[in-house]
Every structure is written in C-alpha cells, then in structure tokens.
Design a protein around this nucleic acid. Structure first.
Lengths: 229, 229
DNA sequence: ACGCAAAAATGCATGGCCTGCAAAAATTGA
DNA sequence: TCAATTTTTGCAGGCCATGCATTTTTGCGT
C-alpha cells in the first residue's frame, strides 16, 4: 500500500506508533471482552504480536495501557493558558484552553465511554489514572500561576530538570489559588466527561462542558431546576 | 503495663488490633527510614514479627498499610449533609459537613503530619489514597442529590446491596450538579490539605480550608492579592 | 547493494506482590 | 482437659516489573 504521506519520520517512528497503538487497542478489546482484571500483559502482547518484555518498553505498568488518555494534551493546555491574552478571568482562560483540547472528545465517544466504565469499576486503575493526571495538574497549576502571578519571578531561576523530584516539590509549593484552579478544572472535566458518557451522549458534550463551567463560575449555586424530569 | 481499660472483647480481638497496629507502625517507621518504595512486605512483617502471609490477612495490598486514614469518614460527611437544615446553600452545607469531619481529624495532628510526609513524597500512594476515597465521592454525590432533589424519590426503592456494582452504576448516573459538587468539594479538600502540609502548618488548617471554599463560592475569581508576600 | 552503527525487540533471570489451599498453632468455651 | 473455632503460617503458583545481554530491525553513508 503506497503511503500517501511520508509520515514525518522514518519507518522506525511509524512502527513505534503502530506497536503502541496495537498494544493499546488489544488491551482495550480484551478488557471489553473479559473484564479489565482478567487481562494479563501476556495476553495483550500475544494479541498485539510482540513479546512480553517489549510491552514494558512502551508502558511503565500494565495499568498504563488502559489509561493512555491525552498523553501530551496536558502540555498543550498549558501552552494555551500561557498564550491567552492578558486581562481575562483565569477560569475563562482555563475553560477555553480545556475546550480546545477536548474538541475531539465527541468523536471518540466509544473510547471514552469504555474508559469511563473501566475506571469506574476499578479503583486500582483509577488510582493510576489519577496519579498520571496529577502530574498534569501540577504542570497546569504552574502555568496558571505564571499567568496570574504576573509579577512573581520567585521561581524563574535555577530550575531543576523538568520532571525532577525538586521540580515537583516546587510545584506543590505553588500558591493556593493556581493549585485550586488547576485541580478543580481537572475535576470538572472529569465529571463532565463521566456525566456525558453515562448519558450516552444524549446531550452534546460541548453543552455539558459549558454547563459544568458555568456552575463553577457561578460558585456552585443551587441548580435552577431540580432534576425531576 | 496494666491495661487501664478491659479492652472490650477477648484476648483474641485485642491481639488482632495489636497485630494490625504493629504492622502499620512498622510500615510507617520503615518508610520514614528508607523511603516508601524501598519497604517490602517482607521487611514490614519481619519488623512486626508476623509471617508474610499474615500481612495479607490484614491488608488487601502493600500500599493499604500506608493509607489507613479516615476509613469511614465518608459516611459521616454524608450523614451531616443529609442532616443539615433545609434552605441552606448546598455548597455551605458541604463545607460545614467536611469541616466537622476534618476538625475531628485535626486532633490527630501528629499522625496526619507523618502520613502527609510519606504521601507527599510519593504521588502513587497519594493517588491510591484518593482512589480509596473515590467511592466516597459517589456516596457524597448521592447524599447531595437527595438533599437538593428535595422531591426525587426516583431511587429510594429496590436498592441493590450497598456497594454493589449496580449501586455504583446508579450513582454514576446521578444528575450533573451533585456529582460536580461532590467531586469539586473533595478536590478542594485535597488541595487544602496538600497546601497546608507543604507549608508545614504555618497557617492553621481551618483558615486554609476556609479560604479554599471561599474561592469556590466566589466562582474562582482572580485572587485579590498576588502572593508576593 | 553493502555494511556499519543506532535503535528496538527479545529472552532470561530475578525479585516483589498477591491469592488459594491445607496444615499447624492459638484462643475460646464447656 | 477436650473439642470447636479462629488465626497464623508455609507453600505453590501466577502476575507484574526491571536489568542485562543478545538478536533483529532500521537508518544511512558508501
């Protein structure tokens, strides 16, 4: 089959992506069939046609193959936050940055639904997901801090290596507001996605998302109409 | 040392408690000394004087021995939410319910500080702790839904067994507002605790907690003063 | 085409985590 | 003391995860 696109990077890079995708796909498929807990790394590798050892060249743990959501989306959100025009409300900036990143969610409905189901019925996996998520959360908190701080170069010098323990410790010491904003924003996204998934997309995701952040911006007041419908 | 209290229950029951405590104590002590990741179950058991197999009669996993905090606090918060006088803003109800629970916990300051230190240096464990509290989030969402719904006995009949998969699935289908409120509330608590721990309690926890929920109630506006102090 | 160097995949050994099962030890109550 | 119940323990086995050495694949200059 002639490649229409040279697919930047050589065959090497493409194969890596393919292998990773094959592993993830096989994992999700087997999980849907036998339940997440009954899917071994060996089974995934057999289905994907690679050795067991290779699996751990792509994922740090068995659970990670089930998470795999928005691997690098966190950095993109941070970029959007930092690139936003000054003077806007931080929550709005965050909302729009997240919205841009979540635009494609609707198309991967099935994937997200499956993941929500899996995570919901599996505390252990949820823990892993949250663990992965929290690194992003701290990154986001830092971006928000830089945006809000406007004049707090407290931490702009002598940065340790990216992702190092010191870096993480430093981020944990960020002011309360950006930490809270980042964490609550991430939580809001999670709830919006879960809510939308459970409802099987009977409402456009964009609307659920909008309503969620409206609630946040309004200070979580009692909802206008009781859900008696 | 003569037991001041007859320790209701026979020697059997006392021994179980003692063993559990010994395991937890040994685990925390070894973790403080060598780092959480370098503490094996075997080492904990050797220090506690029991067999490795026995460990798993007391804890479902290695990590659980490090968590073990506020096991049933979730239910108490739910009770407080349901018992709150009608007419109050849901966010206020939630805040006070959480505050009541956290107040009781703050008396065990030293225990918390030690655990916070351990958890703080170990995101994976923290994530696991959060995962354990995830069930609480859905429970809390349900309590908030009952309180807000005011007249939605949709689910008050034919309840499946508590904690069953159906129960959990049903809770996930709760309306957006209580889900969001429960999740955001839990997140706010987490951020408040983390912030307070990192600052080594230089500010009373109650104040951090108050400020956090003030931010939430105000819709997360840009903070009044940049944290340049 | 060819061959070399870099990168990736693999096999193997090792160690930790966790579970079921059955035997041994301890506790309880009569 | 004796029998019943509960707890502890050893052991086998399976899965997860990592390090190391080896083999295979890919990229690229010649």
């Amino acid at each position: 089959m002639a490649e229409g696109v040279p697919a930047r990077g050589g065959l090497r890079e493409r194969k890596k992506k393919a292998t990773r995708a094959a592993l993830a796909e096989a994992a999700v498929r087997l999980a849907a069939e036998h339940g997440v807990e009954n899917v071994t790394v060996d089974a995934i590798c057999a289905a994907a046609g690679v050795s067991t050892r290779t699996f751990f060249n792509y994922f740090d743990s068995r659970d990670e193959v089930f998470v795999m959501i928005g691997a690098d989306s966190g950095a993109l959100v941070c970029d959007d936050v930092l690139a936003a025009p000054a003077g806007r409300a931080p929550l709005d900036v965050l909302r729009e940055a997240l919205a841009a990143e979540l635009e494609e969610v609707e198309q991967q409905h099935e994937t997200w639904r499956l993941h929500a189901e899996v995570l919901g019925s599996n505390p252990q996996l949820l823990a892993r997901t949250l663990g992965a998520h929290m690194a992003d959360e701290l990154l986001l908190a830092e971006a928000l801090a830089e945006r809000v701080g406007a004049g707090s170069p407290l931490f702009t010098e002598d940065r340790p290596a990216h992702g190092s323990p010191q870096e993480q410790e430093r981020r944990r010491a960020l002011p309360l507001y950006p930490r809270l904003l980042a964490a609550v924003g991430g939580t809001a996204v999670r709830i919006a996605v879960e809510h939308w998934c459970v409802r099987q997309g009977e409402t456009p995701f964009a609307e659920v998302f909008r309503e969620t952040f409206e609630q946040l911006a309004a200070g979580l007041p009692e909802p206008p109409r009781p859900p008696d419908a």
